[in-house]
Structure formats: C-alpha cells, structure tokens
Write a protein that binds this DNA or RNA. Structure first.
Lengths: 211, 211
DNA sequence: TAGATTGTTAATCGATTAACAATC
DNA sequence: TAGATTGTTAATCGATTAACAATC
C-alpha cells in the first residue's frame, strides 16, 4: 500500500503538515485550494497527494485539519520519536545540535561525535560531545536510527561507512560529497554551496536576458 | 540558448563540478562513466547533461577535465564573485557565516543582520553583525545579490519582503516556511526538519516491510 | 584496424495539471 | 436546490535511460 506513494508526494507531505500546524486557530477545515496557496503548489496536486493517504476529504467542505495532520504523521512514521547522532562538532554540527526545529519535529539528538579529543565534553543544550570511537556504542545504547554527517568532505565517506556498519540506515549528509553506500541505506544530501550555485545560474541568466 | 537547459540538469552541474575538482591529480580527461560513478547518476544522464553545454567531449577519449570545469563554471555564472547577506545571527546564521564552503565556492558574506541589538558587533571570521535596519544600505553599498534567511519561521516572510524591496532577486531560505514572493525572485528552500521527516518515512516503511 | 566513448535518438517512465462527474 | 469542493481521469509535460551510429 504505502510503497506506491510517489517520491514527489512524500517530499511534499512535510510541507503540508507544516502548513496545517501553523494554520489559523479558528478553522477546523481547510480546502485543497487554501492549502495549495500556502504550500505554493497547484490545488490538483494537493488533492492528488492527499488521495494517496486515503479519502479523508469531504466534498463541498474540505479536509478536517486535525484529522489530516494525524494521517500525514501516520504515513510519515512520525508517531514515534527518533534518535539521531551528529558526527562532526564543528560550527555546523553544533548549530544543528542547537536547532529547535529538530526537537520540535520530535527528533532527539543523542550525541555529537568528533575525532578531535579537544572538542569532547558537554555540548550545546546539554547534548554530550563524545569521541568518534563511541559511535557504535551510542547507536546501540540510545537506539539511534539517523546519522547526520557534518564533517569536511574528506572525512565524510569514512563516517558514512562507520554509520552503516553500526546499523544506521538513514543518513542526512551535509558534507559536499556524494556518498557511496549500500542501496538499503537512504541518504539525503543537503549541499549549501550547491544551492548557492543554482541561484547564481539564475542571476547570471536573468542578467544576460535583460541586457 | 541557455534558457533551454532543463532545471534538473542545472541542479546536477554543481555536483559534476565538485567531482571534477576533487578528481585524481594525474588524470586530465574523464569519461561519462567515471563521472557518473562518483556523482551517483546514470552515464547517459551525464552525457545528456553535458551536451547542453555544447560538444566538449571527444569520442573514444572522454572529456578534458580542466575544459569541462571551465564550461560548467561559465554556464553557472561562477566566473564572478557574488556577495550575500545572512539575515539572522542565531546559531544557524553564525554557523553559515563560518562555513568555508561558501568562500571556497567564491561567495562573499558581506554581513550578518539581526533585529536583536545585543547581537550587533564583530561576528565570526570578521564578518560584521549589523542591525536589520542597515539591510538596504548594505545591499547597495556591497553590491549584494543573494539573501540568506536564517531567522525563525515567524519572521521569514517579513525578511523576504524587505530583501525583495531592497532589490535582491535570489534567496536561500532556511526558515521552515514557503515564502510568497514575486515570480521574478528565485527562492531555494533548505528545510532541515523536512529532510529528517522524509528519512523517517523510509525508516517507517522499511520497518513495516520487514516485520 | 580495433577499442573506447561520445552525442543523440527514441522509448519509457513518472510527475503535473486541467477538467469534470460525484457528492457533501 | 445551489454552491462548493473532492477524488479521479486523461492529457500533457518533462526527465530518465537504453541503445547505437558516429568517430576519435
């Protein structure tokens, strides 16, 4: 059943969820047109996406906000809490450990890990900074299911290999590298420089187009 | 000419660029198969993407690495430097200002801006932290073309509006909101919680599939 | 020439969206 | 009933990829 939800739909569900939670306090229902407006997509798209969850809308009325929220959370598997480790306690790693969005969304940062012994100790918001050698132990002891890589590109593949060996099957990679991992491991890449370079393409082209 | 390069191709060009730069020192050419391997895509895809740049490959030999790098940089508009401002001097904003990847890729962070007067002063790596009221002046004086939003969701739309009014046409948005902007403005969204939630979908489904 | 690899075609696949019957 | 809005179909659009002639 679940397997047939398209990839593109899955990546829009968190956006719908966010739009629903931050909706006007008074309303209890919401039309596909309204949701489309705030999510920045086509209303037919919204209806199609939501139809994969089952038929929870009411014709002529719209979707019940609380109900829809629950359905999306169920499909995304957000009914339980997940623990994550962040590897790399540099600026980015520490900023991520601080990041409220993770805890707000129900993720728990079990530890920051770093090869540099000087960084070990108490970290931001009481998250411990541990030596990288503790990786395997933390993953087991704290039931960690997500690995976040925030080390320089040169170390990223090694870290990924260790995470995989430790049993991690979901990785969020902030290093500017394409990781080579087993196909059973899901990797999402967040590449900050790449995002800026895509923006420059448009800057460059708009400049050319109007000159 | 440029306008016809597909969106999907544009977003892969920075990855190819990175793979080329970090290649083995000895080699001067590179086949589509090799590039596909490190970039994690299909080799036919690589050839098709590169064909949009023009015909710079040599049959039976491959692509000249230095030449290809130059062509990609030209198409992406990376032959010049761009200045960016980061709005929001919290943990994320400050980590981004520190981030070497931006300077390595030729971006200059002109300033961090924050509404909180307590945060104003000298920031990370000598980047000044200025009051948000300085926004318009900095954009003009420093010829800023990119705005990076690292404020909480509640303030993001206001910041976006001010950036647009100041003349910015490219925005990188780290706030968990879909910004409503004029269609002439290009927005890229980096939503950290969304990425984790997409990972949980796969965790959840793999767990269900194997149980 | 033989081997390697590009550039491009055509087939396939998947995602988007207009349109509208169903129905609250 | 009249108005609103869903769920779904079918058309369209765009992206991926196998295959192979061209050619170094």
């Amino acid at each position: 059943m679940k397997g047939q939800i398209p990839h593109a739909t899955i990546s829009r569900l968190p956006i719908y969820l966010r739009c629903l939670s931050s909706g006007k306090a008074g309303r209890t229902t919401c039309s596909s047109e309204q949701l489309a407006q705030v999510a920045g997509v086509n209303s037919a798209q919204v209806r199609k996406d939501l139809s994969y969850l089952g038929s929870y809308g009411v014709r002529g009325v719209g979707y019940d906000i609380a109900d829809l929220e629950a359905q999306i959370r169920r499909v995304l598997g957000l009914e339980r809490e997940y623990a994550a480790v962040i590897v790399g306690a540099g600026n980015l790693g520490r900023a991520l450990a601080h990041y409220d969005g993770f805890t707000d969304a129900g993720f728990r940062i079990a530890a920051l890990l770093d090869v540099d012994p000087a960084k070990v100790g108490e970290g931001p918001d009481g998250v411990p900074v541990l030596p990288l050698t503790e990786l395997e132990r933390v993953v087991v002891d704290e039931d960690v299911s997500i690995g976040i890589i925030a080390v320089p590109a040169s170390g990223a593949q090694d870290v990924a290999d260790r995470l995989c060996t430790a049993g991690i099957r979901s990785i969020l990679n902030f290093a500017p590298t394409v990781l080579q991992v087993d196909e059973s491991v899901e990797v999402r890449r967040v590449d900050l420089s790449t995002e800026l370079q895509i923006l420059t393409f448009h800057l460059h082209n708009r400049a050319r187009a109007t000159s």
